[in-house]
Design a protein around this nucleic acid. Sequence first.
DNA 1: TCAATAGTGTCTGTTAGACATTATGGA
DNA 2: TCCATAATGTCTAACAGACACTATTGA
Lengths: 207, 207
Amino acid sequence: MLLAPREGALHVLVDKPLRGSAHLPWVSPRGGETLPTSARLLARRTAGAEPGWMEQLQAFGDQLKHPGSASVSVAYVGVISAPAADGRTARGAAWVPVAHAGLAGRHAAILESALDTMRVRLDHAPVAFKLLPPTFTLSELQRMYELLLGWTLHKASFRRSLQAAYLVEPTDEWRSEGRGRPAQLYRFAPRKRRQSRRGVRFDVLGH
Amino acid sequence: MLLAPREGALHVLVDKPLRGSAHLPWVSPRGGETLPTSARLLARRTAGAEPGWMEQLQAFGDQLKHPGSASVSVAYVGVISAPAADGRTARGAAWVPVAHAGLAGRHAAILESALDTMRVRLDHAPVAFKLLPPTFTLSELQRMYELLLGWTLHKASFRRSLQAAYLVEPTDEWRSEGRGRPAQLYRFAPRKRRQSRRGVRFDVLGH
DNA sequence: TCAATAGTGTCTGTTAGACATTATGGA
DNA sequence: TCCATAATGTCTAACAGACACTATTGA
């Protein structure tokens, strides 16, 4: 499953057949390919670009055809930057906003799971940074996080967390966009590792 | 991969062949079985009991034999309570402490991944409660969490978090164990859902 | 001068962890 | 009486979010 930020909303790449509901792109791997390689090739073929970040989601056991020949689908989630996602997609494939993906039951659940996984990884892998150019303003970075997360963030808190994590360093360039005060450009430059969060939390129970 | 608390340490069930290094139990699913069913059957056959909690870890692409026939391993992690794990294991299978599992490269990495996943799920699924009897003292519960997590917790904080999450309710029974003041017995009785944690955190970056 | 955006200082409520204290039974 | 464990109250540092304010540009 491929995600991309486009026009201020998170989009997902779906196959739209002439009849029937939309579904996610898939492929049956050829011999000699590892799972991540197959997933990257599928991305290149359907979206015309390779994901900046990709991770395995889950394996699904499909209907088993006959004894001894198990059929398993392995789902991946990846993100593609806005410029890379502007290339040509495969025939029948289209970027649609995740809010209106129009996927049927099982595939809709996979999409939800993919979004959850991606949002959790946002704190541990440079997902958002792979979607931005090498230098960017902190407002651009925050907007990218908000787009991926699906909710808005507090500006001051966002910058404090960013500083505490030593993830970015300022360049000596500024950029003026339209009206207001110009913003300083930053680059991704992780320096330290935050020690793991302390304590235990008891959050939601899936019962 | 099956985990069980035994004698104050977290153990993992491994197959110990007569020669060569230990490895994790595995099975090639029969036709008509779903993935979770196969995993549960494997657990019952090797450990003599069904896991109280189980979840899929990851799929691994093995060597691909020939074009069109992909070979994929799907790893599961599950936990088995101490009494249930006292039953007879399959021939060649044995519970060993995770610190001395003696697994070879790839399987050692799977074990690490399984522990990470299980520890994350501890906050979202009643993993620890499935390993305890229906009523238990808060100290027993805390010791179970510490055993699963691999580190010690702060008693007062543990109880505050527990209360804030509305996970347990007291019974009107007490139990005296050896010397000190008797402990009140509690039962697992989740009442509420904690709303998701606020804000954004930028933790470790796997680069 | 006004509007819009960048960037920052301060305050407050929440919470994790440290520490201390009380409670209560067995040895 | 002493000791071990349960249970809880209080203090503090860290931090997220709210709010307000300054800074700096284009219209």
